[in-house]
Nucleic acid binder design. Structure first.
Lengths: 117, 117
DNA sequence: AGAATTATATCACAATGCGATATAATGTCA
DNA sequence: TGACATTATATCGCATTGTGATATAATTCT
């Protein structure tokens, strides 16, 4: 009953989810902190709106990619990676790394550098 | 007047679109060829269904990320990158590269390597 | 005290992904 | 040649996710 994620590519992370997980790799964070960290890690390119953030958090909790952390605070709710979350994040990271390597082989970065001259 | 893409993060590429563009960086390809190349480039991890592929192609044509290529063939329709498509792809590639670099700084790859021992 | 910022949450609609399905040309090989 | 697999494009409807707007309230700043 109600198994979410019925698609075969479902262990692939969307960009917002990837960056949320990245922000949690080193420490547990609360929502607003995640927002700021993602913006920082993406050089200001990715700004998560509240809807994206809390919607994603809700789904990630359901999927057990994250759990509520131990930090106690009245207003804030902290989240941290689960083993599953870290594992799936690692897979995606490896995939990005491969894509970057392929781009390197195709010499795409050289063209990129030229474009900035 | 119908201006599609009213969201501010709309220049961020989804994973399927990124891989489609990657497959087109070196040569023009037809749809089925793109499908196979994406599967190859992702080590078999990403399998685009027909719906994903042709839906994405349609949108990418509208957004002028790709155009129909020059190769003539009765059955096949070839597509190639536009300057805009290449530019936006490069941005995303740079972003992935940064994410990978951040992960490297956080020593996440070391942990990743350990997990494979 | 009043304003700005921090912080979480939900809503409705927009955008995209996806398997199923349809259609047809081409290739294979018995 | 006939049957079957593969190549190739396309659309449909539903599932999933993203997004800005909006609401609420505590905390911080001046």
């Amino acid at each position: 009953m109600s198994k979410r994620k019925q698609f075969s590519n479902s262990n692939l992370l969307t960009l917002p989810v990837f960056y949320i997980l990245l922000s949690l790799t080193t420490q547990e964070r609360h929502g607003y902190d995640i927002m700021k960290q993602v913006e920082h890690d993406s050089n200001g390119k990715i700004k998560l709106g509240a809807g994206t953030l809390y919607g994603a958090i809700k789904r990630m909790l359901e999927d057990k990619l994250i759990v509520e952390g131990s930090s106690e605070h009245a207003r804030r709710r902290y989240y941290k990676l689960t083993e599953k979350g870290r594992s799936i994040f690692n897979n995606q990271l490896e995939r990005y790394n491969q894509a970057v390597e392929i781009a390197r082989q195709k010499n795409l970065f050289a063209k990129l550098a030229l474009a900035y001259v």
